[in-house]
Simulated scan of single mutants.
Amino acid sequence: MPDVSRLVRHRDGVPVYRYWTDRDVPPVSVIRGRRADLPEHRPHIHDFPVLWYAPAEAVVYVVAAGEVVDPRPLAAQSDGTGVFFDPAALGHDAGSPWPTWQAHPLLFPFIHGQSGGLLQLHLPDDRQPLWNNTIRSIEMELTGRRDGYRQATLAHLTLLLIDVARLTEDVVGDLRRSGEPLLAEVFAVIDRRLSQPLSLSDVAAEVGMTPGHLTTVVRRRTGRTVGEWINERRMSRARELLGERDLTVAEIANRVGMTDPGYFSRQFRRAHRVSPREWRRTGASGIRTESP
């Protein structure tokens, strides 16, 4: 693990690491090398997000937070780049430690549930320059430490997280491939009925479970309730629709199953800290960042 991580405890004999930041430690760290050179080779847990980029294979590994990670499947002799960051740096709604930040819209990929804690994403050829250049820019900011370097570093990190979110848009497919058929079915119901009024009872009826049992299973596996996932998927769809300039906020609210535009706007602001109209004006930069 990098110097900014600290062993804070053990869980069932497995070491747990935390991103250890202060006024002198930047909220993002980058390491280069081979998996064989990393100090931690055993299964371990960290309560902060990690990306491992292997440019030769054009692969990005999204390393699950809060889960036991087995690094052994990574090619030991393959050059790679690790990007570690404190989720608190993304804003107060991403407050550290895990799992309090998991509702942040850009951090959902880090709770993917893939076996072994590693979700493998193949980068298309046209996205590889973005990753190479953005990681290099982060390193330059961290090395130079000029005025505003923290904000610049977080801006570059946000670009990477947006790309990860786009690469993992197929939530249902990811869950099916990771051996979670029930969760896949739950998400399929939510996405299919997203434009309608939808409750926990509705989802439970479709998957043939009682609301109480479904709540227990989904919360245990993802850390969130079915209702929270319904709202997250509605907000995700709303962000997409806000890119269509001819749609009013009221029309977007209706399309994501919220007939009251005022309630929709309040939910959107609660999730993103900006109103739907502000998000539309600023685009992805509507996700604000703060220096710790």
Rank of each mutant, 00 (worst) to 15 (best):
V14H: 08
Q114R: 14
H213L: 11
G33Y: 07
Y149G: 07
R34F: 13
R193Q: 09
A75R: 08
E180T: 03
S285C: 08
P26K: 04
P124D: 12
V16Q: 03
R11L: 12
R239P: 05
L242I: 10
L167E: 06
A188H: 11
P109R: 01
E139T: 13
V30I: 15
V83D: 07
D191S: 13
F48M: 05
Q151Y: 11
A250W: 03
D125Q: 06
D260E: 06
H41A: 14
L175Y: 04
E139K: 09
G223D: 10
A253L: 08
Y53F: 15
L38T: 06
T248E: 12
A271K: 07
F84W: 11
P55N: 09
P39T: 04
A58G: 11
H272Y: 15
P87E: 01
V59S: 12
V218W: 00
P124H: 07
P26T: 01
E185M: 13
R72H: 13
G283I: 00
T134M: 09
V14L: 08
L200F: 01
A36S: 15
R34N: 09
G262R: 10
D170W: 02
Y19M: 03
A184K: 08
A56M: 11
L123A: 10
P15E: 05
M235P: 03
P292I: 04
H10V: 04
V50N: 06
R220A: 12
S236V: 09
I287N: 03
A284P: 11
L242P: 00
L123I: 13
L214I: 10
A184H: 08
D86Y: 06
P99R: 13
T100L: 08
A75K: 07
Q267L: 15
D70F: 04
Y263R: 14
R127L: 15
T158V: 14
D202P: 05
R288E: 01
T143E: 14
H44Q: 09
R136H: 07
N132T: 15
Q114K: 12
F264V: 11
D147S: 12
H44N: 07
D170Y: 05
R280H: 06
Q114S: 10
E40S: 02
E232F: 14
Q77N: 14
H213M: 10
R192M: 04
V189G: 00
M209I: 01
P109C: 01
E185R: 15
R281P: 00
A238G: 09
V8F: 01
L167G: 14
A76G: 08
A56I: 13
F84A: 05
G116W: 03
A56W: 10
D202A: 08
Q267N: 14
L200D: 03
V63I: 15
A88C: 06
P26N: 08
E251L: 06
R23P: 00
E290H: 14
W98D: 01
